[in-house]
Amino acid sequence: MSKEFSGVWATFEYLDDTCNSIKELRKEGYRQLTTHTPCPRHEIDHALGNPQSSIPWFTLFGMFCGSTLAVVIMVFMTLDWVLPVSGKPVISVPSMGPIFFELSVICAIWITLFGTVGLILKDTFGTPRPTSKRYKGYDRFMRDRFGVVVPCSEHDYEKVEAIMNRYQAEEVHREA
């Protein structure tokens, strides 16, 4: 599961409070923040400095795999059993279009899906998070509450708590 964690986490009822606390925490030098929201919110992305995902690389890789596979199987199979029809070219590029397109799409989509699942699992199991029952059992993040998790050392607990409380966090907890 998650690596050992030291830090503070808080829950919020309002989105603007959450964003303001994130901005202030980042200003204070806390950059490795984890947030929880019931749905994707661009306001949180902006507050976090618009991070980018590596997913498009999976898609690009999948598309190249699919298109290469399409060309290889069509050329190989056509040359392996030559079927000349009405003097038309044996390897006909226009007729390759549909299968080239379909295989590119199917590979791009599945590799993107596997990449997404992998990255979600990596975040679930690889990112340091609070290990307490209270955090793990908190089941309102997907329902109607926002959350901010701040990894920090013992010395910073009070400072982080003060920022959370300034923005009217509902609950603030220390995790050692």
């Binding site: 994707p40 993040f141 997907m142």
Partner: peptide, 28 residues
């Protein structure tokens, strides 16, 4: 649900994948 808890990292990958899926599925 793959341990999904609505973290910023999870939504980031999820939303980007969703957008790419939509873009690829449109010509489909």
């Amino acid at each position: 649900s793959l341990g999904f808890r609505g973290t910023n990292h999870q939504w980031l990958h999820y939303m980007r994948a969703y957008l790419l899926f939509a873009a690829i599925c449109t010509p489909l």
